[in-house]
């Protein structure tokens, strides 16, 4: 048993994601309070791992791990965690971390908190819950805990550094895997690139039906903007997946982000909160989006959009 904190970093195409640095920074802060070390864990090959401000960095460098594979990564991390017995294991609440954190929790019988926004020195975790409508403070019981942290919760800079990584071979055999990576899928071309747009009119579930998307298109047309959306609109088939903003979609940073009928689930906020001007129209005055937007109105999006069309 140690007071170390393992940070499971994540990378794609040779680059580490911001949340990796954020977690390392936070881990350092916690480790010093707990009297342990912040250990960055890099799983996979093809990446330069001397980039963290961690107390140490372990790089499990194996060609079989060069692409994310939840089964392989899970086995490696499980073995490592068992060996190191850290106080806390940190994952990003991301497409990769989500495959591993709860799995590891159930596998090892270790408490896990998700949607973690903050972690106190006593390991009390503040979590977003119920689509951002609630905030929960929970504290894990026992000697070890897992935290799956929301991106954007901690500063990036605190985790950046140049600690030399120690490369090790995989602690477990990686043959006979049931999951095989086949190929990467790049975003389908042909549609507009919403990450390159200066103005976005973004629609959410509140748009109601596919027909109503036209109204947003019309408004966007008048504003010289492009229509983007939250996940439910894409899942319903009303817009192509290339228009989806958020955790599983694209991260955008336009000059204007005009939101119609988006309540602001954490997954969406992750993709747009650095837009320069955020205006949100939603009928629910308690929608979390109003905590992020610069301007907001509790109003019917159709009425506002129609009235705007007349004025533009």
């Amino acid at each position: 048993m140690s007071n170390d904190i393992l940070v499971i970093t994540e990378h794609m195409d040779g680059k580490f994601s911001d949340v990796s640095f954020e977690m390392v920074g936070k881990a350092k802060e916690l480790a010093s309070a707990l009297g342990g070390r912040a250990v960055a864990v890099v799983v996979g090959g093809g990446v330069s791992s001397n980039v963290f401000a961690s107390d140490s960095t372990i790089h499990i460098d194996d060609a079989a791990l060069s692409q994310f594979n939840p089964e392989a990564y899970g086995k490696v991390i499980e073995a490592l965690v068992k060996e190191k017995s850290p106080r806390l294991v940190m994952f990003g609440w991301t497409a990769t971390g989500m495959d591993l954190a709860a799995w590891l929790s159930a596998k090892l019988g270790v408490p896990c908190a998700a949607y973690v926004k903050n972690i106190g020195a006593d390991l009390t975790m503040s979590c977003q819950a119920y689509g951002g409508k609630m905030s929960a403070d929970v504290s894990p019981e026992g000697d070890m805990a897992i935290a799956a942290c929301l991106a954007g919760s901690f500063p990036v800079e605190a985790g950046q550094g140049s600690t030399a990584a120690t490369s090790i071979a995989s602690p477990v055999a990686l043959d006979g895997l049931k999951i095989k990576f086949v190929e990467a899928i790049k975003p389908a071309g042909g549609d507009v690139d919403i990450t390159a747009q200066a103005k976005l009119v973004s629609i959410g579930r509140g748009i109601g039906s596919k027909d109503n998307v036209e109204l947003a298109e019309e408004l966007a047309g008048k504003l010289g903007a492009t229509v983007s959306s939250s996940r439910p609109v894409v899942d319903a088939g009303w817009l192509p997946r290339t228009r989806q903003v958020g955790k599983s979609g694209l991260k955008v940073k336009p000059k204007l982000y005009l939101m119609l009928g988006i309540s602001g689930a954490p997954e969406h906020l992750e993709g747009m909160k650095s837009a320069e001007l955020i205006i949100a129209i939603n009928t629910d005055k308690k929608a979390p989006i109003f905590n992020v937007a610069h301007y907001g109105a509790t109003a019917d999006l159709f009425e506002v959009a129609e009235a705007m069309l007349e004025l533009l």
Partner: peptide
């Protein structure tokens, strides 16, 4: 097909 961030995905085959 698994979705990662930024519209990137990965195709996996699983027995």
């Amino acid at each position: 097909n698994k979705e990662f961030a930024g519209g990137i995905g990965g195709k996996y085959s699983v027995s």
